[in-house]
Amino acid sequence: MQTEALLHAPEAATQPTLVVDRLKAYYTTKAFGIDRDIRAVDDISLTVAKGEIYGVAGESSSGKTSLIKTIVGAIRPPLHVVDGTVRFNFSGQSYDIYDMKPDKLQAIRWRHLSYIMQGSMNVLNPVRRIKHSFYDFAFAHMGLDRATFWDKVRDHLRRLDLDPGVLDSYPHQLSGGMRQRTTIALATVCTPEFIVADEPTTALDVIVQRDVLAMLRDIQRDLGSSFLFVTHDMSVHATVSDRVGIVYAGRLVEEADTPTLFRGARHPYTQHLVASLPKIGDTTRRASLPGRPPSLADPPSGCRFHPRCPLAMDICSREVPTMTNLTPRHRVACFAVTGATP
């Protein structure tokens, strides 16, 4: 088990709950005989410890959703895994997502691993009442009799500030925020050990967004679960995440504890993200990044950030910088930081 990720793992002694190792996943589209690869996840390694909140940030189309889908094994053609492994550790048992029988994978879902998809307002079956979804998703996993099960579901809804009456509604009868909270309730009712959430609050207005995030955080603390979540909103990461990984064009470029990342970011792209956060009393116009986000079908050579990077050097367009530890809990992939030797 001498994987690259484990070598860089912050607490190599205790088993991390999630180990992603050199993961590559591409969208391969075949149109009239011509293959086209979109390298949405390109050589990403990371770990998430038990009880930790790991945040993933990056601009739109950088491959955040693709990464998450690959991690939870929710990929569909044309997205497919090209290389690497994803391994979860639940109650001392290790599960390799891409090397296990489909029914076993199915068995750990929801009980141990639950996933709140991007656009979680539209994930409920439009033609059935909400209670059927709770029954389908959770009943078999909880091993309770019906009466206890429904009591527990109602309690859980109340904890999320939802009237248990939503159980008898159809999704289209609820507001977007209620639907999102219902989905979160559905994803957490079985007290899973690992919760994955992709932009769980993006469609909500700022006030509701805070509420929902606070709730998610509370539930995560209560349950002691690990939590991997994506948002492009850096200010949300500042308040919620324990550790943040920055994704640029399908690659992880920097990763550190939240305070370190916000105070001492080293990668030029992260520095730009942090600098563009609004600060109280600051009235200067924020410099926007020159150039456009790269196409993942035909990414720039070497460091994918080099066409837009203020510090770009010769080597940057030739060689790919690898993730290097600055401190045990701070990794970065940039020649300007680690020196020009790859």
């Binding site: 939870v72 929710a74 569909r76 199915q106 068995a107 879902r109 929801w110 009980r111 639950s114 996933y115 998809m117 656009g119 539209n122 994930v123 409920l124 079956n125 439009p126 979804s133 389908d136 998703f137 078999a140 996993h141 989905t183 559905l186």
Partner: peptide, 14 residues
């Protein structure tokens, strides 16, 4: 089957 509610149910172990 490509709709989100189907994917979600599949991931929910239904």
């Amino acid at each position: 089957v490509t709709e989100d509610y189907v994917t979600f149910a599949e991931l929910g172990g239904v």
